[in-house]
């Protein structure tokens, strides 16, 4: 038995002692077979490590190389001419061929993509939305409208829909007298009704005052004679003749979808277009909600 093997055995014993010293009190042998297996693994690792190292240290110390040296050397360090084994060479070439195939033919292009996942998510949601709300009743409609309103409309119109002291349109009422006078004076042409643009100056002075007062107080009683200028488009009842022109008496679905699509510029300020942000059911829901809070 040479001194290296003795040293190796000594090292193994030392390492095992150290292991026992560090972790030995954590278990007793035979207590739990998982712990036993772990300890057995530790012993195996120590043994294998020490003896594999010993083997190579021994080889470095005692081995002598044989073979034919290649012609070049680096500061006296040479290299043997070892031809590549045939099996290895075939695998090497084969790998290159496979790489070319994988790169140009076999590469999996139909794999995960971030945008693909996003599109799937949207489609899944839309299908679910449609299935769930296909036969929506009126109460649910107003409820949905309220939640859409809170997210999309409340930042400007306020949670109470009152326009927050004139910062935006007060949606609990249709139009104030000032707004009506402003529209009569300046016209309106943004909403894309089939009746076309409303020209400025359809009425003026006292006539405009009368119209504005009548509409803003809820269109009660007989219309003033001056309203004749309005009724040719907005209808004698001011309801917009079934969507041909804007409804002056309330927020119907047509009015709301036109405003959401085109935005609105009035005496208060500008409302941006919400085109594409709400689907049809949601628009109907918001108008149902607005109708449910009128006059509050």
């Amino acid at each position: 038995m040479n001194s290296m093997v003795k040293g190796g055995i000594l090292l193994v014993i030392a390492l095992m002692a150290a292991t026992y010293f560090m972790a030995g009190d954590a278990f007793t042998l035979g207590d739990d077979y998982i712990n036993d297996l772990t300890m057995l693994g530790a012993v195996a690792i120590i043994g294998i490590t020490v003896f594999v190292s010993l083997k190579y240290i021994n080889q470095i110390k005692n081995d002598t190389a044989t073979g034919e040296l290649a012609s070049e050397n680096w500061d006296g360090i040479g290299e043997y001419t070892n031809p590549v084994p045939m099996g290895w060479a075939i695998i090497f070439i084969g790998t290159i061929v496979w790489m070319m195939w994988y790169l140009f033919v076999g590469y999996p292009t139909n794999q995960f993509s971030q945008i693909g996942q996003y599109n799937e998510e949207v489609n899944e949601y839309n299908t679910k939305f449609q299935n769930k709300w296909d036969n929506i009743d009126e109460g649910q409609m107003a409820k949905m409208g309220q939640s859409v309103f809170f997210l999309q409309c409340a930042p400007c119109h306020g949670a109470e829909a009152d326009g927050m002291d004139g910062k935006a349109q007060d949606l609990t009422a249709r139009m104030s007298k000032e707004q009506i006078l402003d529209v009569i004076k300046n016209g309106s042409n943004k909403l894309g009704y089939s009746m076309g643009a409303m020209p400025p100056g359809m009425a003026s002075g006292e006539g405009a005052e009368k119209i504005a007062t009548w509409i803003s107080t809820g269109m009660k009683g007989d219309a003033p004679a001056e309203f004749g200028a309005c009724s040719s488009c907005h209808g004698p009842d001011g309801k917009g003749m079934n969507g041909m022109a804007a409804n002056l008496s309330g927020y119907d679905n047509t009015l709301l979808s036109k405003v959401l699509e085109h935005g609105k510029k009035g005496s208060i300020g500008t409302m941006p277009s919400f085109k594409g942000r709400l689907n049809k059911t949601q628009v109907t829901a918001v108008s149902a909600y607005l109708q449910s809070i009128q006059g509050e």
Binding site: P155, C156, A159, M164, K167, I268, G269, T270, M271, P272
Partner: peptide, 21 residues
């Protein structure tokens, strides 16, 4: 810029809590 306008920003920058409770 798609969903807020000049007048909203004006109100909001002056006193954000008055616009967004």
């Amino acid at each position: 810029g798609n969903y807020r306008t000049t007048d909203w920003h004006e109100n909001h920058m002056m006193a954000p809590a008055e616009v967004v409770p």
